[in-house]
């Protein structure tokens, strides 16, 4: 019985509560499992939906940009180029929109049962990762179809890209999730924010094609750009420069710390206001 001693007191000093998150690790699994099940349960095509969207976009952008506008993406062929950007972008945007909405979606549970609240936006990001892994699989199939050369070190580049974009999505998502509980306006701001970010990310164009240096520097703070740069480095494009990496990485960390800090600071009162 000595194992379970709970000390209840008014919210005090900041802590991440990692130990507690570990105790509740199964709940991560169950929330993610529920969301995946529910998402694909009543659809005829099921998990294929996770593929149709990026492939459709890839087709559209390939027709538009590689034929009509002729964007130079060498050494990566345009369909692969754009698909690599799209799957990472989808991971980022799904993380943000799922996580941002998650606290309100699960308000009925928050009001009734205690568990570390971070599990909710956390498992929303895991759901996005699940969809991403399916997208990644099809991406690799396309790489083989287009005879895109991959090296052994590509694995590290892929991993770096995925980790950066997931952390950035998680940080932004938790921040918006906490804000959403307090100010419902952010619900309506998320789609707009995402559209803005879509065009400031090098999904359909390479960052180096931007001629103004200040703009290029500014955009390199976008973690999605850093992440995509690593993905494309795995395909043989030149890896991002040190400054570019540091810019994206530092901004990712800022987002993550700000998101977690704000979330943990406000979560105690979620049940009172949600």
């Amino acid at each position: 019985m000595e194992k379970f001693i709970t000390h209840i007191q008014p919210p005090g000093r900041f802590s991440l509560g990692l130990k507690e998150l570990w105790q509740y690790r199964e709940l991560f699994y169950f929330f993610t499992w529920r969301d995946i099940k529910v998402k694909y349960k009543q659809t005829y095509l099921g998990i294929l939906w996770a593929l149709i969207q990026p492939l459709g976009m890839m087709l559209l952008f390939t027709l538009l940009f590689s034929r009509t506008l002729k964007i130079d993406t060498a050494p990566v062929v345009y369909p692969i180029f754009v698909l690599s950007g799209l799957i990472l972008w989808n991971l980022f945007s799904a993380s943000i929109s799922h996580a941002g909405d998650s606290m309100i979606q699960n308000a009925h549970i928050i009001k009734k049962i205690y568990f570390p609240r971070l599990i909710i936006p956390g498992s929303a990001v895991l759901l996005a990762l699940f969809d991403f892994l399916i997208g990644l699989l099809i991406f690799l199939v396309f790489c083989v179809l287009y005879r895109q050369s991959l090296h052994w070190y590509s694995v590290f580049y892929f991993a770096a890209g995925i980790i950066i974009v997931t952390l950035a999505g998680f940080g932004t998502g938790t921040f918006l999730a906490a804000l959403n509980v307090k100010y419902r306006d952010f619900r309506y701001m998320i789609p707009f924010l995402l559209q803005l970010l879509f065009f400031s990310s090098q999904i359909i164009y390479p960052l180096r094609s931007i001629s103004q240096e200040w703009l290029r520097n500014l955009l390199s703070f976008n973690p999605v750009n850093t992440s995509i740069a690593y993905f494309r480095a795995a395909l043989g494009a030149p890896p991002p420069e040190m400054e570019e990496t540091m810019a994206g990485l530092s901004f990712t960390l800022i987002l993550l710390i700000a998101g977690l800090y704000f979330f943990r600071k406000t979560e105690a009162y979620f049940a009172d206001i949600v």
Binding site: H7, I8, P10
Partner: peptide
């Protein structure tokens, strides 16, 4: 049950 925090005071649950 820790759904909402107290404003003051404390509690120990064994």
């Amino acid at each position: 049950s820790r759904i909402t925090p107290p404003t003051c005071g404390e509690a120990f649950i064994h």
